[in-house]
Amino acid sequence: MTTLITGAGVIGCHTARTLAARGEDALLLDLRPAREAIATIVDSPRVRIVEADVTDFSALSDLIAAHGVRRIVHTAALLSTAIRENPLKGIEVNVMGVANVLEAARHHALERVVLASSTTVCYPTFGDFHGDAFPEDFALKSISHRPGSIYAATKVTAEHLALLYRDLYGVSTVSLRYAAVISAWSGPGTSVPGRVLSSLVGPASLGQPSVISDPYVVWRGGEEFIDARDCALANVAALDATHPAQGVYTVGLGHLCTFEDFERAVRLLYPSLKVELRTVPTGGFAGFAHVRHAASDIDAAARELGWRPAFSLAQSVAHFAPLCVASTAHP
């Protein structure tokens, strides 16, 4: 059985690696695959890399038929910065890409489609939420809680399309809302948590103070993080789940981390770390207006997918920090 993974980024590559490690074939699709960077994560004869565009339905359908694909993990997307620069392209990739994957799954009667979503779909409601754990099926005011970015709007759309294809056409879909993903690699694309890590680790590895002047990498209150490797494990768990009835699940640590928690995790590696804050955060993580006070409820993922996070914040920092140092030394 072959699983198609769209998007050969950090999460897609780790997903392919996990599948290959248990003896399964994976097809890693990307429009412009960074082959050298991919090889640093997964280098297995069971993983084939193909160049293709998820916005091309005919090419996607032909690929599924030619390689005997039975399942899809869809991670291909443009992130917020790229979408702000080219919103039309971002909407095309993030919405029509999902529509093409779902329609191809319907056409070929695939066994399962797993879609990468984001907890940013929930961020606008944080100012009104007063519970202890944030549920997937949260209360939403359609206007005042509208998405805070085009990226988040595309993820909301993707989740609803997936549920509709499940309800109307019987396509087995699972959407995973990743928390803020901690990762680092030599390929393109940098998450905000990756920027936080680099801003602390890079200077510390050189014995220099970490000067924080970017308001996006410091925050008030807490934020929920997740290791890219845990995202991959969640993807595979979602492929395997026998009855994912809820359809949408949060993939996070289940507890909040402050900027100071991030500092402490880095200081375990670099005890002499010194941080100079030259910006004062006014809101939550990555510039969002609302400060977060409740972590996500991840019990549904444990109950229906059999997944719980394997890596703590400190373990994630320890794993990805050397990659940040390498990228600093060889830009």
Rank of each mutant, 00 (worst) to 15 (best):
R229F: 06
R166V: 11
L63E: 08
L168N: 13
V114H: 10
V248H: 11
V54L: 12
E136M: 10
H243M: 11
T6Q: 12
P193H: 00
Y165P: 12
S312A: 05
I5E: 08
P188R: 01
G7Q: 11
W185E: 01
D128V: 13
F138Y: 15
H290S: 11
E260L: 06
L268W: 00
R308Y: 02
A232C: 09
T55C: 14
G97P: 08
S118T: 10
A109T: 13
R46C: 02
T3D: 11
H145E: 09
V42I: 10
L269F: 02
S118Y: 02
A329Q: 15
A37Q: 02
L197I: 07
T125R: 15
S316D: 00
G254T: 07
R278K: 15
P331T: 09
P45K: 01
A295T: 01
D240P: 06
E103I: 02
P193V: 06
T282R: 04
R308W: 03
R106I: 06
G127R: 14
P87L: 10
L27D: 09
P188A: 01
V114I: 10
D297E: 04
V236Q: 12
P244L: 09
D43Q: 02
R166A: 14
L31F: 05
R195C: 00
D227M: 05
Q315T: 04
S80A: 13
S186T: 13
V171P: 13
L305T: 09
S44N: 05
S118M: 01
S198M: 00
T119A: 08
D297W: 04
L110A: 04
G9S: 12
Y165K: 12
Y151A: 10
D214T: 06
T40R: 15
A39Y: 01
A318T: 06
H108R: 07
L102W: 08
D230T: 01
S213H: 13
V217I: 14
V93L: 07
P215Y: 12
I83W: 06
H14M: 05
V42A: 02
A52C: 08
L269Q: 09
E36L: 06
L102R: 06
L273H: 07
A139K: 14
S312N: 05
G202V: 01
E51A: 12
R229W: 08
